[in-house]
Simulated assay, not measured.
Amino acid sequence: MPLGFGAPLAEAVRRLAELGYDGVEVQVRDSGVRAAEGLARTVESGGLKVLGIGTGPVAAQDRLTLTDPAPDVRRHALSRLLDAARLAGALGVPVTLGQTRGTFLPGLGDAQRLWAERAVRRLAEEAADHGSRLLLEPQSRANTSLWHTPAEALAVVDSLDAPAGLVLDTHHLDAEGVDAVRAVNRHARVTGCLQLAAPSTRGPLAVGDPRLPALLTALRAGGFTGWLTLEHTQDGDSPRAAARSWTALTDAASALS
């Protein structure tokens, strides 16, 4: 994954633990509940925890979406997501959904929206049935035709019959012209994960970024109980990128204490 730590899991866990990280969000391409024990063992042996299961590779690597015109592709995409939800449940963590909801084609938008809504409802129910919770990520229109703002995603969450929440990503909020600090202030309590990257570049965080203390303050004031994910480009050196972001976050946090 271009926005994730570029190393085998065991090595990534070891290096991140050395830097001071608490856990990892694992991006899953094709894996189900049978992988839970081995995954937890690998991560915990390095002193970290699995905090969430992401599903980005389902679309990013295999081009499977919930709105594909081909019914077989839609079924395959949903099957992958349901497996990820069962894996998340076995680990006792949430499962996230981003670009796998797909993009609209001319003349098919109404049908595609209905397909996506039905699939997300099924996914939320499956997650809840297995002890997990779906977190829906508002993403920019460059990634998907559906649910670009926190308000749009929250309307979907509120329509579900199963527990669900939001993932907020500063990159996607910026791309949609949504003020990230204001969005966190408003939605911290229903947000399970905040994904962070440097403004404009989507690279590692920088010491002195004035938005970081404001975001951390908003999270604290809003009763946030989720996790922070450093989802950004690696600049060809994941350990260095992770160290830069860790330093920027701890510097911002120390300024508030």
Rank of each mutant, 00 (worst) to 15 (best):
A248G: 13
D158W: 05
L108C: 03
A111S: 13
V93T: 06
G203M: 11
L228D: 06
L216F: 12
G98H: 04
L168N: 11
L134S: 11
G109A: 15
G131C: 10
T225W: 00
D237P: 04
P163N: 04
V190C: 05
A142Y: 13
G165C: 02
L219S: 08
T201Y: 02
L216R: 03
H76C: 12
L219G: 09
R186F: 00
A88N: 04
E176G: 09
P94V: 09
L219W: 11
S45G: 15
A116C: 13
W227E: 00
L228T: 08
L64Q: 08
L205E: 01
A153C: 07
A164G: 06
G6E: 14
L154N: 11
F224K: 07
L9I: 10
A85V: 02
G56N: 15
G226P: 07
L194A: 10
L81A: 03
A12I: 06
E137L: 03
S45T: 11
T96C: 03
Q61S: 13
L3Q: 09
P2N: 13
A183S: 12
L219Y: 10
V73I: 15
A17G: 11
A197N: 12
L136E: 03
V120F: 04
V120G: 08
D235F: 09
H187Q: 00
V26R: 02
G32E: 04
P71G: 13
A197H: 01
A10D: 15
L216Y: 03
L97K: 01
A142I: 11
L219E: 06
V93P: 05
T233H: 15
P163M: 01
A151H: 11
L64H: 10
A180H: 13
R121T: 15
D161G: 15
L196K: 08
T149S: 15
G32V: 06
M1V: 08
G52W: 01
A77P: 10
M1K: 05
R244S: 14
A253Y: 05
A243Q: 14
I53Y: 00
A111I: 11
V13C: 15
L196C: 08
R15F: 00
L146T: 03
V50M: 02
A153D: 06
R189Q: 11
L134Q: 09
F224N: 08
A12L: 05
L97Q: 04
S132V: 07
L78S: 05
P210N: 02
L216A: 02
P94H: 08
A36N: 07
G131W: 03
S31Q: 09
L205T: 08
E176I: 07
A241M: 05
T229D: 10
R244M: 14
S132T: 08
P138T: 07
S254M: 12
T100C: 12
H232K: 01
S200W: 08
